[in-house]
Simulated assay, not measured.
Amino acid sequence: MLTIREEEIKDYNEVEKVVEESFKNAEFSDKDEHNLVRRLRNSNEFIKELSLIAEEENKILGHVLLTKALIKGESTSYETLALAPLAVLPEYQKSGIGKNLMNKAIERARELGYKSIVILGHENYYPKFGFEKASKYGVKAPFEVPDEAYMILELLPGGLNGVSGIVEYSKAFFE
């Protein structure tokens, strides 16, 4: 039976292997996602309650990570979460594990009071969870990305009212 739980320190090495395997054949990947996870864990933007694993019979099959980010407007900054990465072992992809991880991460982020999540991802996958083009809200990535691939999810009603600007990610993304 599949369980979704918070990642623990003892899971770190296995999680990094799962993340590395997951992106081995990914088309849009720098093949460095497992190192990104390690760097993010050591950053101020890490939220341990939002680092979740999917596990079956003591084997980690997937992982999702949400970290703190900011949407910097002209005069105000708004807190948001950045989703990266969502990883499922290749042989378990398309079996609902990613969907379960995403739903749990969204639910947990809402419970913790966060208002939105930004993602650079597949435009056919993430809208299933309610993600919309970030440009609709005047939210932009700090780098060149296709408009349809940069998305945002409003977690709380009105959570994006008056919010616009450029997303500022953890430095760990650029190390």
Rank of each mutant, 00 (worst) to 15 (best):
K171L: 10
E49Y: 08
K104N: 09
R5K: 13
K99C: 00
Y78M: 03
D30A: 07
N44T: 13
V15E: 09
S116R: 08
D32M: 11
H122F: 07
I60D: 03
I4F: 05
D147Y: 00
L81V: 08
L153M: 13
S135R: 04
R5G: 07
Y169K: 03
L52Y: 12
I60R: 05
K140M: 06
E33F: 11
P127L: 12
F131L: 13
E6I: 10
L40S: 04
E7G: 07
N124H: 15
S22P: 05
Y12R: 14
S116V: 08
S77K: 15
I53Y: 10
K48V: 02
L66Y: 10
V163Q: 10
S77Y: 13
R39Y: 13
K10G: 08
V88S: 01
A105E: 06
N42G: 13
E107C: 03
A172M: 01
G113E: 07
M151N: 04
G98T: 03
P85Y: 11
I97Q: 03
K72M: 14
L86R: 02
S135E: 12
R38W: 07
V163M: 08
V64S: 12
E7F: 08
I119G: 05
L156H: 11
E132C: 02
L101K: 11
R108G: 00
F28P: 00
G159Y: 01
K104A: 14
G121S: 12
N103W: 00
E45H: 09
K17M: 14
R110N: 08
K24C: 01
V145M: 04
N58I: 00
L2R: 01
A84K: 02
S170Y: 07
G165E: 10
E168G: 00
E20L: 04
K10D: 12
V139A: 02
L50H: 06
E123H: 15
P90D: 04
S116Q: 09
K104D: 09
R110G: 13
N103L: 12
L153I: 14
A84W: 01
R41W: 06
E175C: 03
I97R: 00
G130V: 10
N44W: 06
G62D: 03
E33V: 09
L156D: 03
D147L: 06
A149I: 01
L86V: 15
L66N: 03
G138Q: 06
Y125N: 10
G113V: 10
I152N: 04
D147S: 14
N35V: 10
V18T: 14
A84T: 11
G158W: 00
L101M: 09
G162V: 04
E107I: 00
V19E: 04
S170G: 02
R38Q: 14
E27W: 00
R39E: 14
G159F: 02
I9H: 14
G62T: 05
E27Y: 01
